[in-house]
Amino acid sequence: MSKMNFNDYGRCMATYNSWQNGVLFDLCDQIGDVERRLDRNMFFGSIHNTLNHILYVDLRILTILRTGEAGPFAPTTIVADDFETLKAMRAEVDADITEFVEGADHSWQDEIRELPFPDGVTRKLPRQLFLVQLLNHQTHHRSQITSELHKMGLDYGNTDVPYTPDLPIS
C-alpha cells in the first residue's frame, strides 16, 4: 500500500479491533466468571464491567454514526450480564463495525454531527472523528484489561497493528 486514505484506515482498524477483541475474549473466557467479576480497582471495577463499557460505547457511537442521535450517556450500563451473551454481542458488533466501514457509500465522511456531550457542551464534529473515537476507545480500555491479565500471569501477546492477520491492505 503506497497511500492510506480514511477508508483504508477504517477497514484496517476494524480488522485490528476484531482481532484484538477475539484475543481478549479468548483469554477472558479462560479466567472464568469469578475472576472476570472481581473488583480489581479498575475504572469500571472489574474486567466484566469494562468489557460491558466498551460494548456499550461501541453501540452508542455506531448509533451516532448511523443516525446522528445519542441518548443519555450511562457509562456503567451493563449490556449483557452473562459472559456468553457478552461474547456473542461483541462478535456481532465487530461485524457491524466492519460492515459500516466497508459500506459502498462513503459520503457520510463529509458530514458534521452536532451533539451534546456529558460535560454539557454541544460540539460540532466531523462524523469521521466518531469512528476514530470508537476505535481508540476500544484500545484504551482493552489496555486496562490486558494489564490485569498480565498481573494474573497471562500473556496477551502482540498488539501491534502491522501484525493483524488478514489486514485489508493492497
Rank of each mutant, 00 (worst) to 15 (best):
7 N>I: 15
9 Y>E: 11
10 G>A: 15
11 R>W: 13
17 N>E: 07
17 N>S: 09
22 G>K: 10
24 L>Q: 03
27 L>D: 07
34 V>K: 12
39 D>Q: 01
40 R>W: 03
42 M>V: 01
42 M>F: 00
45 G>L: 03
45 G>C: 01
52 N>L: 01
55 L>M: 09
65 L>D: 02
69 E>F: 09
71 G>K: 01
72 P>K: 09
73 F>Q: 04
75 P>D: 13
78 I>D: 07
78 I>H: 06
80 A>E: 14
82 D>E: 15
83 F>M: 06
85 T>L: 08
86 L>Q: 07
87 K>C: 05
89 M>D: 13
90 R>W: 03
93 V>D: 10
94 D>Q: 08
94 D>C: 05
94 D>S: 04
94 D>R: 03
95 A>N: 15
95 A>S: 15
102 E>W: 11
105 D>A: 02
109 Q>T: 10
111 E>S: 02
111 E>K: 03
111 E>C: 02
119 D>S: 12
120 G>I: 06
121 V>F: 06
121 V>N: 12
122 T>P: 11
123 R>D: 04
126 P>S: 07
130 F>N: 01
134 L>E: 09
136 N>K: 05
142 R>Q: 04
142 R>T: 00
143 S>Q: 01
143 S>K: 02
149 L>M: 00
150 H>D: 02
152 M>D: 02
158 N>W: 06
162 P>F: 08
170 S>Q: 14
170 S>T: 15
